[in-house]
Design a protein around this nucleic acid. Structure first.
Length: 320
DNA sequence: AAATGCTACAACCGCACTCGG
DNA sequence: GCCGAGTGCGGTTGTAGCATT
């Protein structure tokens, strides 16, 4: 991408830094192919490179490795990254391990440059929209919320929020703004339970008809709970207390608190939620269960299996 | 055509962990 | 147990190239 800086090599005997020249790449590539990976400081020395071992390792892993898949991320990969990130957070190496041919650095860059930007746009658009009352006139046009903009490269294939036709615009606006207002809270690592909980299906917000009818999730102050829409009279918006949240549906009760300071607890809780929903035998249940059912149809991989246990994620190969 | 802004991504940095002496 | 080297990882920076003004 960039041309090596001529000044990168110091005049004295210090190790070279900065961009790698094609000659250096050749040296490292030839050495690795002929000798395999060993101690990286030895690699650097034996390959005749004026680089530290750490730099050689990085160059090999992120750029020279023969099994690397170059080029843009596919839609499938993109969705998987979002799903995995919702479960794993910024554990790029673990995410990369599930994406053959992709490096943690690549995924990290993709996330920070592309996905994060879309989330930011989403958030700023909401700010500009103003209060629910102010936006009431425009909420009937979902694009004004820029919800789809989260993944702008995707086609409009049902990722837009779908409201009950009888829901008033003000309720829709209140509901959406309630969710969007929480985005800054979730920005830290974006460890939002969206993919698991149903706000985002991995490609954008996913408010299914059934989800809006009965249950959604919300996440605030470290508490993962539910937002119950229209459980009573049509159009009612019920936001439960933060400390302990329970939905009002007949066949589903969610009372979740989690410690945001410990990722393991957090993700354990998320997985518990997912598993609880999977275990439900009530296939006719609405709300959260249907949200998951909707989600499971979104990707070509078995997301249900993915969400059961992060440690059991399959290593997917999209290279075909 | 030049200036400016934006984006993508390669590479560095610092911290944490493991392991052998 | 301590120490240092090696390694892995996530955050951040720097900049080439493209887009826009």
């Amino acid at each position: 991408m960039r041309k090596p800086e001529p000044s990168a090599k110091n005049s004295n005997n210090k190790l070279r830094k900065g961009l790698w020249s094609p000659e250096e790449d050749d040296k490292l590539m030839n050495y690795m192919l002929n000798n395999g990976q060993g101690c990286w400081s030895d690699v650097a020395r034996n390959a005749g490179l004026e680089r530290c071992g750490k730099s050689c390792r990085l160059r090999w892993i992120n750029y020279l490795r023969p099994d690397l898949k170059r080029g843009a991320f596919s839609l499938q990969e993109e969705e998987l990254i979002i799903h995995l990130h919702s479960l794993l957070g910024n554990r790029w190496s673990q995410i990369a391990a599930r994406l053959p041919g992709r490096t943690d650095n690549e995924i990290k860059n993709f996330w920070n440059s592309t996905i994060k930007k879309r989330l930011k746009n989403l958030s700023s658009t909401n700010t500009n929209t103003g209060s629910p009352n102010a936006s009431e006139s425009s909420i009937s046009e979902p694009k004004d919320l820029n919800m789809r903009g989260l993944i702008s490269t995707h086609e409009q294939n049902g990722f837009m929020p779908v409201f009950n036709s009888s829901s008033s615009p003000s309720i829709q606006a209140t509901f959406l703004n309630n969710i969007i207002d929480r985005l800054p809270t979730l920005e830290h690592g974006l460890n939002m339970p969206t993919a698991a909980g149903g706000f985002f299906n991995g490609t954008g917000p996913c408010f299914t008809q059934s989800g809006v009818d009965s249950n959604g999730f919300y996440f605030e102050n470290g508490v993962f709970g539910s937002v119950n829409i229209g459980a009573g009279a049509e159009g009612d918006l019920f936001v439960p207390p933060l400390e302990s949240v329970s939905s009002a549906t007949d066949n589903l009760k969610v009372e979740i608190t989690c410690n945001r300071n410990t990722n393991s607890n957090y993700f354990d809780d998320l997985n518990g939620i997912v598993n609880n929903n999977h275990r439900s035998e009530n296939k006719g249940g609405s709300g959260v269960e249907n949200l998951f059912q909707e989600e499971l149809r979104m990707g070509e991989w078995d997301l249900e299996e993915l969400m059961k246990d992060v440690s059991s994620f399959p290593f997917l190969d999209f290279s075909s």
